[in-house]
Amino acid sequence: MAIKCRKELTGGLYTGLNTKHIVMASKMVAEYSGLHVQPHKAIVGANAFAHESGIHQDGMLKFKGTYEIISPEDIGLTRANDSGIILGKLSGRHALKSRLMEFGYNINGKELDDVFKRFKEVAEKKKCVSDEDIEALISDELFQPEIVWSLGDLQVTCGTLGLSTATVKLISSDGEEKIQCSIGTGPVDAAYKAVDNIIQVPVTLVEYTMSGVTEGLDAIASTRVVIRGDDNSRTSTHALTGETVYRTFSGSGASMDVTVSSVRAYVSALNKLLGFRSSPNRSGEMIQQK
């Protein structure tokens, strides 16, 4: 963007990059890496095009170029409040697609159908679906690995009166359904053990984090997990030390139910692990661990 905005200082240097994909690329990297972009980050931060000061707001209302050397449209971002659309349970597919276009997501077909289905599920429970809710849902749908297993149904029982139990139904890529029940120290632990009983791949949960996407008790929960395969088929060699290290795989999930969100994230990570195919080239690859 510096090169594009300051052509007179670069001798007319031209990159050929489509800058309208910057926001989308940033969101994709954030989702895959699990590293959130801080609000004050230049260009792609949430506050990059926010104006709170009265003087700034007055200048923006008169001429947007007063305080914005870069237009948000140049990086694929459209101000949501310019459209005047408020999404809720009565909103249709066209309104949702219009809002997604504002976020930089041009999706159609099955991808749009899947996002719309998840949107309607949330909209039935919330009076107004926020932009943050939509961002969480679309990230959960689009930034996922190749599906080996997907969550069908989940039922948990927990509390102080007995053991936490979970019943999980997973659906394989060829449509096969498998159901398992398990007990655990809590609903998430029980659900994860039920998933393990179905997939039967030895893994260790390395990291588990959950955060609320918005304020309020009806907020969507966003979960990220990191797992490590316990078998020797998913290892790499450290580029500096030469030691053998176990590869880790991350997964993310989102739902208004914290347990559902947790299981979606766990299954997502397992799909990455299962999709990784060990080969002679990969078993001896040299990677730089950061």
Rank of each mutant, 00 (worst) to 15 (best):
I3C: 12
I3Y: 14
K7Q: 13
G12M: 11
G16V: 12
L17G: 02
N18H: 10
K20E: 01
H21P: 04
M24H: 09
K27W: 11
M28V: 13
E31L: 15
G34T: 02
G34F: 02
Q38M: 00
I43G: 04
G45A: 04
A46G: 03
A48T: 07
H51S: 04
G54N: 05
D58R: 10
L61F: 01
K62P: 02
I69C: 06
I69W: 04
I70T: 02
S71K: 12
S71H: 13
P72W: 03
D74K: 07
G76E: 01
T78S: 00
T78V: 04
R79L: 07
G84V: 03
K89A: 11
L90D: 15
L90M: 14
S91P: 13
G92R: 07
R93W: 08
A95Q: 13
S98C: 09
R99F: 05
M101C: 04
M101R: 12
F103T: 07
G104L: 11
F119I: 12
K125V: 14
K127G: 13
E132M: 15
I134R: 13
E135N: 12
A136D: 03
A136F: 10
L137F: 04
S139I: 12
Q144G: 10
I147V: 14
I147Q: 08
V148D: 00
L151W: 01
V156F: 01
T157S: 14
G162K: 13
D174K: 12
G175F: 01
G175M: 04
E177V: 01
E177H: 00
K178E: 02
Q180E: 09
C181I: 00
S182D: 10
V188F: 09
D189S: 15
Y192E: 01
V195M: 15
N197R: 11
I199S: 06
L205K: 06
E207G: 01
T209L: 08
S211I: 03
E215G: 06
L217T: 13
A219D: 00
I220L: 15
I220Y: 05
A221N: 02
S222E: 05
I227C: 10
G229N: 10
G229Y: 07
D231V: 13
T235M: 15
T235L: 15
T241H: 15
T244W: 10
T244Y: 08
G251L: 06
S252L: 05
D257Y: 04
V260F: 04
S261C: 06
R264G: 00
L270E: 00
L273H: 03
F276E: 03
N281G: 09
N281C: 05
N281S: 15
G284C: 09
E285M: 11
M286K: 14
I287M: 15
Q288R: 14
Q288E: 13
K290S: 11
K290T: 12
